[in-house]
């Protein structure tokens, strides 16, 4: 496991927390939907400013796993979870945890780009306004900044007031990333962010993700093994055993792809199993 201790004094969080060596700690997480168990006993330690790829076949609970971290799983009725998740050493799976703060600190990018049906500018500013940024100059400055960060500014600077739905799929996805990072999160969860995009857009987004990892901790679910290998520093392999998702191997990406310890992993990355 890559539990490297890295200190980033500039990454001072507003939360009253001590800097932990792991940004996100998941301990013995299990998820049950209705009566069916979908994930069992997942434990992962995710260091700051790393890209962790989560790979595995469909239906092994990867997306449910992500939605536990930002508690979007609360939207799915009849789901129960056990175990613990600590984000900045704060318990996440606690009924008392502050969901608004949690979701501000954890940005989420979905599989299908989902910009709101409003202008590009408003897409970014809606959440900023909601969370207390009122000054219009400041709003415009942040909008410009995040659009530059995702490399979209030059493409859309002359039509910020046009509908976001007029953008191409790749541009929409970058807008969604910009929208997420405008809230200055620390962790970005990406649920197959490239699966609905064309190869050129995928390339742009991958470069963007690599750049973003200097500032954010990134957790990315992907079906694209080559992509996991290209961009991630560590990889987690989820596998459904008797329909229940388990973490069968977790380690440095290089090791997982060059010398997998688990036979299923070895077969999966060579394409023998799907």
């Amino acid at each position: 496991m890559t539990n490297t201790t890295r200190q980033h004094p500039h990454q001072a969080t507003k939360l009253p927390l001590t800097e932990s060596k792991n940004h996100l700690e998941i301990k013995n997480l299990s998820i049950t939907y209705h009566t069916k168990k979908i994930l069992e006993n997942i434990s992962m330690m995710i260091p700051r400013h790393s890209i962790t790829a989560i790979i595995g076949p469909s239906g092994c609970g990867k997306s449910s796993f992500l939605s536990c971290i930002n508690r979007l799983i609360d939207l799915t009725p009849k789901t129960q979870f056990s175990g613990e998740i600590y984000f900045n050493q704060h318990p996440v799976l606690n009924t008392k945890s502050d969901l608004i703060l949690l979701r501000k600190k954890i940005g989420t990018i979905f599989q299908k780009p989902n910009p709101f049906p409003m202008s590009i500018k408003k897409n970014i500013q809606i959440a900023l306004k909601e969370h207390g940024t009122k000054d219009s100059k400041e709003l415009d400055r942040i909008t410009r900044q995040v659009l530059q960060d995702v490399g979209l500014y030059d493409e859309v600077s002359d039509r910020l007031n046009d509908s976001a739905l007029h953008l191409s799929g790749g541009q929409q996805q970058r807008l969604c990333i910009a929208r997420a990072i405008a809230l200055q999160p620390e962790l970005l969860l990406m649920d197959e962010p490239c699966s609905a995009l064309d190869p050129i857009s995928i390339n742009i987004i991958e470069n963007l993700i690599t750049r973003l990892s200097k500032q954010y901790t990134i957790l990315i679910v992907t079906h694209n093994l080559a992509q996991a290998r290209r961009i991630s520093s560590s990889t987690a392999v989820f596998w459904p055993t008797n329909g229940i998702g388990e973490l069968i191997e977790y380690g440095a990406t290089e090791q997982i792809f060059e010398q997998p310890k688990n036979q299923i992993t070895a077969d999966y990355i060579r394409g023998y199993r799907a």
Partner: peptide, 12 residues
């Protein structure tokens, strides 16, 4: 997707 997007941004 809109509901999720909105929840993820902690919109009221």
């Amino acid at each position: 997707a809109h509901r999720q997007g909105s929840e993820a941004l902690a919109l009221s």
